[in-house]
Design a protein around this nucleic acid. Structure first.
Length: 858
RNA sequence: GCCCGGAUGGCGGAACAGGUAGACGCAAGGGACUUAAAAUCCCUCGGCUCUUCGCAGCUGUACGAGUUCGAUUCUCGUUCCGGGCACCA
């Protein structure tokens, strides 16, 4: 309503000089010179390079804050997702520094991995050379973004100085029995020519290259993550600072099932089949037994029987089918009768033993008691092979075997179950387990979905597994004093199957135990090993006589805020949690969990789709920095969406952020004469005009809003819009109050507040403006501003008047108006009385102080 | 199939704790300045209605119910979208 005319401020008439002597006003055109982001950013980056304001060391006298973004794989260039991730982390780091914390904010490189080898095959460059030159380039890109890292702690996981400690941890875990080697069915990716851990198979395909994964039987090294299953699960409850979604995903992945392990005696044999079930309450409904095709007992069951040929044929066919089928496809259920029976220990009944294609050897015991009435898979199987269906858990609506069309998997009352009849499912489960334990044929049992972590990779560019294979001594650990086992430089083609396998000079060695000729292990470690403990190594990145400096680790860990993509919800985050516990048990750490708070930032998308080369919608941060500067890129990445949500990249939005910085730049230059040392500090409120009082209030409200936004949930988007509102009000007030000298301290306070609040997001710009306006100390050093509650308080409030819940009028009342008065004012309002027609009875009046009056009429 | 999220203008997104829906930005339209353009500044901007163009009325936060004086917010159901798991016994 009130139109504010923009008046060119008095300073526009003057000829201003930069401290450096540069003319910034062209008096004839009255146009401020351009916001020269290039020289501003170069200047501050140079300064940060030499002064290292982010270099930190452990200081028990000061509160610490460890903020970490997931380190990148040095693929060649920083992409926009990185830019967003690191912008978010940098705001947190800078904000916490301003709040007085001793902030650890390191950066490094997850530098082992397949792309380096692929590049080597393609162009003949050594993976190391490819990796190191990528690192050099990308480090430059990160520095050009003005990110406040302590670069003296930089690590690259492919350096022997890093992986030697990993090899040492590996050996210590081996000694502790947490590492073992076995031959088993592994997930093989043809394209990557290596095996993958189960977590690394996504929808039956390789997590990296998307190629379908096939089963392959081979030797591999495993980490006993399952030893920590219980703790990994229990401690999820401590992770209050993690998104619920990630916690749930991990909980499901670990997959704890409690139930009964029970032995079924094979008829006329000494053999027993042990099953696992989570539904002991249905055990009287067993009508057959299903074994996995790989079950070791099958051989002895069928040997010499007339079923033998048929069963062997079936098993062979099933295993073949498994090889051919994609992992995510579900073949039709089928099976074959072995000709043998076992006995249900609860009722002595004869139960035919089948081999079934849907039973997994890897889970439970590889044998399943089949209860068709209460398990859908068993139901389908029973109907197909004409096996009996016997309901033993009855829901409200009684089940009849003949008419059932699907299994009843819910709870109910036990029926046809001997002495357990009438019990509810929950109590029946306990009673059945107790009975089995008493009789000695069963026991309470827990199974986990989680499997041990297979870490062998048949690749070159990874940390060598420090083991020597000796004909007579077996797998012998490399003695600690011989570490690191250094990855050999090599001239043979990389990327062929198991490259180290062809490096005679590498693998030829002698057994440390017996001195006989022996062979080194030629597999390398999964690269997720390196990222499972790098956050700890940052605390003592340069330590060359041990894994971790105890004091530093104790001071800095755990990471207070971890930031990265949700795609690592299971893989990296689960491995890191496991490693933390394992390192603790080796005596290196005294924490249980590595990351107190986790922020999973959303993807950056363009035109509604994930950016990808094939779609041609990739935005290169380099180009943007060239065109707009790092501050604009950072500002947009923070402004366009809250961090946890996907961010739609909008070039016009970037333009808008650039415009905003230009606007602030211009406004400050036009009002340089309001800055003076005398005006610093508290503003004298007496004699202020209305506009200035309002600006003063807005300034303090903005400090409050921005602080709240950051503290509560890192919603920088709303923090930035709050500052934009303040700038809009400054812009209006600056014009209007140009002639009033008292306007100047208020204006100075407002401008200085803008710079204080924005400096974590746009550091170069704000520090430059701050210096320009005559300050010596940097904003970072000045710290975060406090707000004055009294100054932020409104003296007038808008009260909404509703009639039957519909907005009918707004009243402006002074702050502190009582409820009764509020009600009276509302009723007295002529618009309100107009709505309350004659004859309508007032039913009720709801008054909410300082907010509204709702008048309910008949 | 199971388990989690989510759905608000042309767009990205705001809205403390049930109390003025659409902050801030983008786009669009109109205007000022300019010889002109760019830049900048100002105004309008969910939809519909009007013989009163108004501090107007109605309607509106995916859809349908419910609780409430009052629902974007809470409850139930439905649809769609996204993510995770997927023979886990």
């Amino acid at each position: 309503m009130q139109k504010k005319r923009r008046v060119v401020c008095c300073s526009g008439q003057h000829n201003f000089l930069f401290p450096a002597g540069q003319v910034i006003m062209d008096t004839s055109r009255q146009e401020p010179l351009k916001y020269d982001f290039k020289s501003i950013e170069a200047k501050w980056q140079q300064r940060w390079l030499t002064e290292k304001p982010c270099k930190v060391s452990a200081d028990p006298q000061r509160p610490k804050y460890y903020v970490l973004e997931m380190f990148p794989y040095p693929s060649g260039r920083i992409h926009i997702g990185h830019a967003r991730n690191y912008s978010i982390g940098d705001v947190v780091a800078r904000y916490k520094r301003m709040r007085g914390f001793n902030v650890l904010h390191p950066m490094g490189w997850d530098a082992f991995g397949l792309p380096a080898e692929n590049a080597a095959i393609k162009s003949g460059v050594h993976p190391a050379q490819w990796t190191y030159s990528n690192i050099d380039y990308m480090r430059g890109q990160l520095k050009a973004m003005g990110l406040s890292y302590d670069w003296d702690r930089e690590i690259a996981t492919c350096r022997p100085e890093y992986y030697r400690w990993e090899q040492r941890v590996f050996l210590q875990l081996l000694e502790k029995g947490l590492v073992y080697r076995k031959k088993t069915t592994l997930n093989w990716c043809e394209d990557c020519a290596t095996v993958l851990a189960r977590e690394q198979v996504i929808d039956g395909c390789c997590w990296r290259c998307d190629k379908q994964v096939v089963p392959k039987i081979m030797h591999g090294w495993f980490l006993k993550i399952t030893d920590y299953a219980e703790e990994l699960l229990a401690d999820l409850d401590k992770l209050n600072g993690w998104p619920e979604k990630v916690v749930t995903m991990q909980r499901n992945w670990i997959g704890k099932s409690q139930g009964l392990a029970c032995d079924f005696q094979v008829e006329n044999s000494a053999e027993k089949i042990t099953i696992f079930t989570t539904r002991p309450d249905t055990i009287f409904g067993v009508t057959f037994m299903s074994l996995a095709p790989e079950h070791p007992l099958i051989d002895s069951l069928i040997a010499g029987t007339e079923q033998e040929t048929a069963v062997r044929g079936f098993i062979e066919q099933t295993l073949l089918e498994k090889q051919r089928m994609a992992l995510d496809q579900e073949p039709e259920k089928h099976g074959i009768f072995t000709g043998k029976y076992c006995l249900n220990p609860f009722n002595g009944e004869r139960v035919p033993i089948y081999v079934a294609n849907f039973v997994l050897m890897e889970y439970g015991t590889g044998a399943v008691m089949a209860v068709p009435a209460h398990d859908q898979r068993d139901f389908e199987f029973a109907r197909k092979y004409g096996l009996p269906v016997r309901p033993v858990v009855q829901p409200e609506e009684r089940l009849a075997a003949e008419s059932m069309e699907e299994a009843w998997e819910g709870d109910g009352a036990l029926d046809d179950s001997g002495s357990f009849n009438g019990l509810r499912s929950a109590e029946a489960k306990q009673a059945v387990i107790a009975h089995a334990e008493k009789m000695g044929f069963g026991r309470r049992h827990i199974t986990w979905r989680l499997r041990d972590w297979g870490i062998s990779r048949q690749r070159y560019w990874g940390a060598p597994i420090p083991v020597i294979h000796c004909e007579s001594c077996g797998a012998v650990p490399v003695p600690e004093e011989q570490l690191p086992v250094v990855l050999p430089g090599t001239t043979t083609p990389y990327g062929s199957h198991a490259p180290l396998h062809h490096q005679e000079a590498f693998y030829t060695t002698t057994c440390p135990k017996c001195g006989q000729p022996a062979k080194r292990e030629t597999d390398t470690m999964d690269t997720f090993m390196e990222s499972s403990w790098y956050f700890a190594r940052y605390t003592s990145a340069r330590k060359d006589d041990g894994i971790l400096d105890q004091d530093a680790a104790k001071y800095w860990l755990p990471v207070d805020q971890y930031i990265g993509g949700v795609e690592h919800a299971i893989l990296h985050l689960l491995y890191s949690r496991f490693f933390t516990k394992a390192l603790r048990d080796l005596g290196y750490l005294d924490i249980d969990e590595p990351f107190t708070n986790l922020l999973t930032q959303g993807m950056v998308i363009k035109d509604g789709a994930k950016m990808s080369k094939s779609k041609g919608n990739v935005v290169d941060p380099d180009d943007l920095i060239q065109q707009y500067g790092a501050d604009t890129v950072r500002l947009f990445a923070l402004f366009a969406a809250p961090p946890e949500r996907d961010l739609e990249w909008n070039p016009q939005g970037v333009e808008g952020c650039f415009r905003f910085l230009n606007r602030v730049f211009r406004l400050i230059h036009l009002n340089l004469d309001c800055f003076s040392a005398d005006n610093a500090g508290a503003v004298d409120l007496s004699g202020l005009s209305l506009v200035d009082r309002q600006l003063h209030r807005k300034t303090h409200q903005t400090i409050r809003r921005v602080t709240d936004s950051i503290e509560k949930d890192f919603h920088f988007n709303t923090a930035i819009s709050a500052v934009m509102e303040l700038v809009n009000q400054i812009s209006a007030a600056a014009g209007e109050e140009a002639a009033q000298p008292v306007g100047r301290p208020v204006l100075q306070e407002a401008f200085e507040t803008v710079l204080h609040l924005l400096v974590p997001m746009v550091p170069h710009f704000c520090e430059e403006m701050w210096q320009l306006t005559g300050h010596r100390q940097t904003l970072q050093e000045r710290g975060w501003p406090d707000f004055d509650i009294a100054a932020a308080a409104e003296d007038e409030l808008t009260i909404v008047v509703q009639i039957n819940g519909k907005l009918r009028a707004r009243l402006t009342v002074p702050a502190g108006t009582g409820e009764e008065e509020q009600k009276a004012l509302a009723l007295a309002d002529e618009r309100v009385s107009g709505f309350i027609a004659a004859g309508k009875a007032l039913k009720k009046i709801v008054v909410v102080k300082d907010k509204l009056v709702n008048i309910v009429v008949q």
